[in-house]
Amino acid sequence: MTALEPREMTVRRWSAGGTRVRPVTTAAVGRPVLDVDGNGRVRMVVRVELGDLLPRWRHTALFLRVGLDDNRIRPVDLWCDAGVPVAVSGLGDRTFGWFLGGFNDRALDVRRFTATAALDVPDGVDVLAVRVRLDASLTGPLLPVVPLRRIRHARVERPWVFTEPLPADRRAPVGRPVRTVPSTTPTVRLCLAADVENYRRFRNPEAARAQERFRELLSMARELAGVDESAVRVENAGDGQFAVLPTGLDETAVIPGLVAGLGTALRRANADLNDHARLRIRVALHRGTIGAVPNGWVGTAAIAVHRMLDSAPLRRALATTPRADLALIVPDSLYRDVIAHGYGDLIPESFHPATVDQPEKGFTEPAWIHVPER
């Protein structure tokens, strides 16, 4: 049995004074154990053990993510021995993971578990290099005034990094081909679409600078949310951007991080600008099964996120709030799954219901809009 490497898990809180980090527990991950299954695939087993929590704190969800350094290696099957409901994501992708628990405040009775991936490894690859991250959703003591538990997100700040030699003989039995999943296989992903309000006011040199600031602030917001920017698929179009985030993200951490990160990035981008140059942006988030094709992406989420970005309620929300630089819209599904539960520092009451209704395009969807004043 491999030795375990412990790490602190910390909770981050964003405020006007900066980010505060508080250790709440520990987690330990063992070096991956590798062997070959009956189909000639490499089977990777990762062992995880959780430390003690602070008094009256408890786990409600866990998310174990693995990133492969070599994009020629692909997972074709994932499973987990935990004794609780488990969902997997990222089949066929270089980043994949296991989600234990659910989007609620029910206690997760897990102290240790093993996660297994069957990997398709082509000839000529002799080493497996992986980065392992663990995130957790936690609830603390009951609030003194109302009987509610605040859901917090804890993460390991520094990933576990392992480099292991692969088994030398990976030949599959004759007549049993290895199943592979192409990287373009449709998977559930978060999508982000954004544009700049009143972009036409800029002359060409101003527009070029505005585009650069716009791209930089969106990239910064994703990085502040803990998203690996190198794994984001971005399509830029002047005053707009469409981004498909990588698979295997913990939405209970990424969505609060994006909301806070967009505000921080906008404040930095606009810090030394006058009212004419100041960027005010609209942003839409959506989630769904989408896949890459030669001319872009296919899937209802890729369409819906643009419909919401171009919606009258979102445009009106920003136009009628002159002290705001951001208007964010999310579908009802994301609101109910993540925002309504107050993950991170999200305040559900700061989101207001709206209906995106575009009958000429056959599109109607309930949504929620957030307009934070600067």
Rank of each mutant, 00 (worst) to 15 (best):
L4A: 04
E8L: 06
V11H: 02
T19Y: 06
V21M: 07
A28I: 02
P32A: 05
D35T: 11
N39T: 15
V45N: 05
L54F: 09
L54D: 10
L64R: 00
R65Q: 11
L78P: 04
P85R: 06
V86H: 05
V88F: 09
L91W: 07
G92Q: 05
F96W: 08
G97H: 02
W98R: 01
A107L: 03
F113H: 06
D126F: 11
V130A: 06
V132C: 07
D135I: 09
A136V: 11
P144Y: 12
P144C: 09
V145P: 12
L148K: 13
R155W: 10
E164Q: 10
R170M: 08
R170I: 08
P177S: 14
T180C: 12
T180G: 14
T185C: 06
C191D: 09
V196S: 00
A210C: 04
Q211S: 07
E212P: 01
E212K: 05
L224V: 07
S230N: 11
E235Y: 14
N236C: 11
G238K: 12
L245S: 12
E251M: 11
I255F: 06
G261D: 05
G261A: 07
G261P: 02
N270L: 01
H286F: 01
T289M: 08
G296T: 04
A312I: 07
R315A: 08
R316K: 14
L328R: 12
R336M: 12
H341P: 14
G344K: 12
G344L: 12
D345T: 15
P348V: 15
P359V: 02
E360H: 08
K361L: 13
G362H: 02
E365M: 13
W368D: 01
